[in-house]
Simulated scan of single mutants.
Amino acid sequence: MGVLFVAVGGAIGSVTRYLVGGWIAARFGSAFPYGTLVINVTASFIIGFFLAFAQERVSLNPNWRLFVAVGFVGGYSTFSTFEYEGIRLLQEREMLLGSVYLIGSVIAGGVAAIGGIALGSWV
């Protein structure tokens, strides 16, 4: 049964990633991977918030954790895409953009996870 929750959550997360990434690219262009950056930061916040909230505030069926944290966030997050895009920027000699993207993603993702944990623990 857990596999079904992961699969459905992953499908929804993947479609959400596709839609959010496309929406951001249409508005801000594709010279810089804004979509992946936004997706990774929001995924960090979502998983931080959800797991803190689920562990500290409410008693949820374990299948919800599989659905949200493993399925949805796993399908929504784009860490492998983040790595690829960052390395490609560096390979294209876009050292400043590549460095800002890689370092900025890690810092912003960390801050977002801390914010999600804090909010999930507080709510």
Results as ranks from 00 to 15, higher is better:
Ala25Phe: 11
Ala25Asn: 14
Ala26Asp: 13
Ala26Arg: 15
Ala26Pro: 04
Arg27Met: 08
Phe28Val: 03
Gly29Phe: 11
Ala31Lys: 14
Ala31Pro: 00
Pro33Met: 10
Tyr34Phe: 14
Leu37Gln: 09
Asn40Lys: 09
Thr42Pro: 05
Ser44Gly: 14
Phe45Thr: 14
Phe45Ile: 14
Phe45Ala: 13
Ile46Tyr: 00
Ile47Phe: 00
Phe50Met: 11
Ala52Pro: 01
Phe53Gly: 07
Phe53Thr: 08
Ser59Cys: 05
Asn61Ile: 11
Asn61Cys: 03
Asn63Thr: 10
Asn63Leu: 15
Leu66His: 04
Val68Arg: 05
Ala69Gly: 03
Gly71Gln: 07
Gly71Cys: 06
Phe72Gly: 02
Phe72Asp: 06
Val73Arg: 07
Gly74Ala: 07
Gly74Cys: 05
Gly74Ile: 09
Gly75Tyr: 01
Tyr76Ser: 08
Ser77Ala: 14
Thr78Asn: 01
Thr78Tyr: 04
Thr78Ser: 06
Phe79Tyr: 12
Ser80Thr: 09
Thr81Tyr: 02
Thr81Phe: 02
Phe82Ser: 07
Glu83Ile: 14
Glu83Lys: 11
Tyr84Trp: 10
Tyr84Gly: 04
Tyr84Phe: 13
Tyr84His: 12
Glu85Cys: 07
Glu85Gln: 15
Arg88Leu: 14
Leu89Trp: 05
Leu90Ala: 02
Gln91Ile: 10
Arg93Gly: 03
